[in-house]
Simulated scan of single mutants.
Amino acid sequence: MKLNKGSLFALFAVLELAGNADRQLSTTDIAEKYGISTHHLAKVMRNLVHSGLVQAVRGVGGGYRFAGNIRRTTLLDVIELFEKLESELDMPNHGKPAGEPIVAELRSITEEIDDLTKAILDTITLETALKSTRLRREAAAVGK
């Protein structure tokens, strides 16, 4: 599965902010850390604020802070704010009906894969993803 930039940028931002809910970061802080477009991230942040996952803090030293529930918000919750995950097998027709058995079977398989992917993303909370991140960091530090 390939996520669009909006979904990916949203995951970066939400996980970064949820990692320490007491701090606030600007779009520039997040964009520079992940090497992404500040302009595009600003659009993503507006959607995250509108969804209630992120809160905008105005004024000097303003920025964004996480406002959601780290234990209940899943990766799928964030991704679905920016795209609809559904199977779409784009098969050339070449004059053959779309009901052709091979096409129907391939569509069925891709739908099942997408359903499994969505089910997995829906079980991974932000808390779980952040714990895994910490474990990877610790393992990398030990390996040095």
Rank of each mutant, 00 (worst) to 15 (best):
R23V: 14
R23M: 06
R23F: 00
R23W: 00
Q24L: 14
Q24E: 14
Q24Y: 02
Q24M: 12
L25S: 13
L25W: 06
L25Q: 13
L25G: 08
S26A: 09
S26K: 15
S26N: 05
T27Q: 13
T27P: 00
T27C: 10
T27V: 13
T27Y: 00
T28Q: 08
T28L: 08
T28H: 09
T28W: 04
T28N: 09
D29N: 13
I30Y: 07
I30M: 03
I30S: 02
I30R: 04
A31W: 06
A31T: 14
A31L: 07
A31M: 09
E32R: 15
E32K: 15
E32L: 15
E32H: 14
E32S: 14
E32N: 15
K33H: 09
K33A: 14
K33V: 04
Y34D: 11
G35K: 09
G35F: 07
G35R: 06
G35L: 11
G35W: 04
G35S: 11
G35P: 12
I36F: 01
I36A: 00
S37F: 03
T38W: 01
T38I: 01
T38Y: 04
T38D: 15
T38V: 03
H39T: 15
H39K: 14
H39N: 14
H40A: 13
H40E: 13
H40Q: 12
L41G: 01
L41Y: 08
L41T: 10
L41E: 07
A42D: 12
A42K: 11
A42S: 15
A42F: 06
A42Q: 14
A42G: 15
A42V: 09
A42Y: 04
K43L: 03
K43R: 12
V44K: 07
V44N: 10
V44F: 06
V44H: 01
V44C: 06
V44T: 14
V44E: 11
M45C: 02
M45S: 08
M45H: 02
M45T: 09
M45V: 12
R46W: 01
R46D: 13
N47H: 12
N47G: 07
N47I: 08
N47M: 05
N47P: 00
N47D: 14
L48A: 05
L48D: 04
L48V: 05
L48K: 03
V49Q: 07
V49K: 11
V49D: 05
V49E: 12
H50V: 02
H50R: 15
H50C: 02
H50D: 15
S51E: 13
S51R: 11
S51Y: 07
S51W: 09
S51L: 11
S51H: 10
G52E: 06
G52T: 06
G52S: 00
G52C: 03
L53R: 00
L53S: 03
L53N: 00
L53D: 02
V54C: 08
V54R: 05
V54F: 08
Q55A: 11
Q55R: 15
Q55Y: 06
A56P: 05
V57L: 13
V57G: 02
V57F: 01
V57A: 07
V57K: 06
R58H: 10
R58N: 06
R58P: 03
G59K: 07
G59H: 03
G59I: 10
G59S: 02
G59Q: 01
G59R: 02
G59P: 10
G59L: 04
G59T: 05
V60C: 00
V60A: 10
G61H: 09
G61K: 12
G61I: 06
G61L: 03
G61E: 08
G61F: 11
G62Y: 03
G62T: 06
